[in-house]
Write a protein that binds this DNA or RNA. Structure first.
Lengths: 214, 214
DNA sequence: ACCTGAACACCGTTCAAGT
DNA sequence: ACCTGAACACCGTTCAAGT
């Protein structure tokens, strides 16, 4: 689960009535819409409230400030991505390293591409916040999933699995973000994605204790 | 040189007198200071002006808006990084692939680490802006430098040098950013840096036409 | 050519009042 | 328990006036 956010960013209260839960959903949905339609610097509490059909005061019942709204939005999003990656990893226990890497890169890339406008908007929105806790929680969750997967590989083991795994994830996360921030053609993007897979695989082979022992 | 920024982000005028040049420098310096001391969301035009010892009106003579100030700051910074990478690349023409990769990762990582607080602050500040043009210009400049270097390698050539090179840079840029956004120990960071070098190298070997032909 | 700072429209956040 | 919206302090940006 996501780590508890810093106090000044945590939601004020949870909705206790169905009406309130709907209000919250409307606020999140409105935030995404304003973010996409107007951009981060035009994302104002007034505009979000208006689009959500509530008053500003209502927003402030759930979130102590604007940042915490964006924080919660990113948290939701990362939860979904993490869940997808976890599921993929569980499905590949015992497989070959090649299958694992392929599946991992595909799952992560796919999760980020599904709604690429939202992904981009959230990458940007995250800047305002004290988001280290958020990123760290996400990283550790994925870390656990991929470590367990790699440890079960049928064709290789690593002297320092922890380091290899952290490196692998830093490279995948980083590269995907870098690609998303540039304006590349779809085919160039697809090419890089496939090259990234190749690259991760050749790294794992080079780092494999198994191979070194042969 | 850096590409011309979008009209709404380009500086209003260049300083024509020594006094004005000093004013501009003071504004840039103040911006970095406020960014480091107070963070992005407390970076206000008033605060920057006050710290720079000028009035707000003066700032607006040089920059049409707050974004353009951050744009110019990032431009300056990326120019310095690009220059360092270019110099490193020129120095390795004709060397082995291993030397090149090592030098490239070191140069880039080093440039970003030199003032890591500034690097982090600028990564964050860049979010507000329409910074695609900025990133693209930087990427293309480095791209040209590394392509020329790799093409001169004494021990390998590539079927699709362009793709290999773009992938390599996306991975390096992305990974470095990812590492900077996390809170890792110094030794963990050093380890990842060295692993990244290994990884790039094993990728280049795998992608080398030379080796495939053997 | 360069600088000033009061003025304006707008933003984040609060809180007394409502259902 | 939940929602409202006027009120307040502050922000980005302008522009008439100064040197």
């Amino acid at each position: 689960m996501a780590a508890t956010p810093p106090a000044h960013l945590s939601p004020r209260k949870k909705p206790r009535q169905a009406r309130a839960a709907m209000t919250l959903d409307a606020i999140f949905e409105a935030t995404i819409q304003v973010l996409l339609a107007e951009g981060l610097h035009r994302l104002t509490t007034t505009r979000v409230a208006e689009r959500a059909g509530v008053s500003v005061g209502t927003m402030y019942q759930y979130f102590p400030n604007k940042q915490s709204l964006l924080y919660a939005l990113n948290e939701r999003y990362l939860d979904i991505v993490a869940e997808k990656v976890e599921k993929t990893c569980r499905g590949k226990h015992g497989a070959t390293t090649a299958e694992m890497v392929q599946a991992l890169v595909d799952a992560y890339w796919q999760a980020k591409t599904e709604r690429r406008d939202v992904t981009r908007a959230l990458y940007r929105s995250a800047v305002e916040l004290d988001n280290e806790a958020l990123i760290e929680a996400f990283a550790q969750r994925v870390d656990a999933a991929t470590i367990a997967m790699l440890a079960s590989a049928s064709d290789g083991s690593y002297v320092d699995l922890h380091l290899v795994n952290t490196t692998l994830l830093a490279v995948i996360f980083g590269t995907v973000r870098n690609v998303f921030e540039r304006n590349l053609t779809a085919s160039m993007e697809a090419d890089i994605r496939s090259q990234l897979t190749t690259m991760c695989l050749s790294y794992l082979k080079a780092a494999s204790a198994d191979r070194a022992a042969r």
